[in-house]
Design a protein around this nucleic acid. Sequence first.
DNA 1: GGGTTATATGAGGGTCGGCTCATGTTCGTG
DNA 2: CACGAACATGAGCCGACCCTCATATAACCC
Lengths: 203, 203
Amino acid sequence: MPSQKSSATIAARAPQRERGRARVAALLGAATAVFADKGYDAATMTEIAARAGASIGSLYQFFPTKELIAEALHAANADALVALLEALAPRLAGKPAEALADILFGEFSGFLAEHPAFVALADRRSIDPKRKKATRQKLRGEIVKLLAAAKPPVPRPRAQALAIVILHLLRVAVAIEGEADLEGRAAVLDEIRLMLGHHLSGR
Amino acid sequence: MPSQKSSATIAARAPQRERGRARVAALLGAATAVFADKGYDAATMTEIAARAGASIGSLYQFFPTKELIAEALHAANADALVALLEALAPRLAGKPAEALADILFGEFSGFLAEHPAFVALADRRSIDPKRKKATRQKLRGEIVKLLAAAKPPVPRPRAQALAIVILHLLRVAVAIEGEADLEGRAAVLDEIRLMLGHHLSGR
DNA sequence: GGGTTATATGAGGGTCGGCTCATGTTCGTG
DNA sequence: CACGAACATGAGCCGACCCTCATATAACCC
């Protein structure tokens, strides 16, 4: 299979010159900010263009549709997450599943701090179910790999179910981190880490 | 404090005659359906009115704002959930926390089947934070009560954190139930129940 | 420099949805 | 019955937002 293009490079009308690439980067950055703090529906193309210091026309030059810029951004984020998990494998190989959980929580939290639009875009209704399922399975696959490489390796079939649970727990943890009422936040996070850690380490 | 009105009865312009009460009921029913399968943003007042067999004017007679009908519906749902948890107390008193988790999962799933708009409305951005926090704390309080009445009672401070975790897990479980890929769904749910059960029962 | 392609701009078209209002219709009440 | 309050109706206003397009500028290539 020649010329495999990463889904991160999907921008409907690809830029050709350097100036274009810079624009696309600026636009994606602005889109990240706007989608992150308004959500997909409330985000407006006008604001994205403005925050990027571009005109609406320029925005539509590279992303002919609101849906398309959201897709491109989400795909790039998903690729980055998968890459992060892959890069994590060597660091986690051989460690007990318990420690694995701890590290995953930290890394995930950091990732979402740098890609704040990821959850908002993943949650929006009206996503192509094919794409959604594919993304999810790639993420699950990475977690399964990590589980298989842990100290007492987790057997494949159970690992599949565990991966789903872990991904959900990671999202819950991030949601709790972002909640307004600070009170007892740390205790709740500890509780979750403990629970998952115990559950992963046999009993 | 006299004339305490349940928040479930909040409909900005309250109906006076029987016909009005029936309309309000029909409108709330239609709103439930529309919000549930389109989400708050994509739901339109026109469709809500149509599904209720009413005109837009009638809808606005009782709910002067889209925001208001969403609030009324959500408040009613929240009240129903709290009532359900209160009614559950006698049935659960004295049981081990483990069993408590199992029953909660079942009840929660049933509740959301009958109030399908609850999650969609709770998740929407632009909710009054005061109201959001109040609702959450009421729910947490109910869970804490249940935990305190379990076989080995869970001490108050830890119960607070546990309640938050439990509520999140309930939502995760419901989300998984509603996912398209049936494959291994039961296994995942069992995994979650097991994990929480073990964690609640001492270790 | 001339030609050609990539990129930039922003006014405005078209649509859609929340909401208003003037005009009814029903119905409890005296 | 008569009167007024509660309720009903739907055409249309208004603003917001996605997107188009005609026109302009930059930059690469010969």
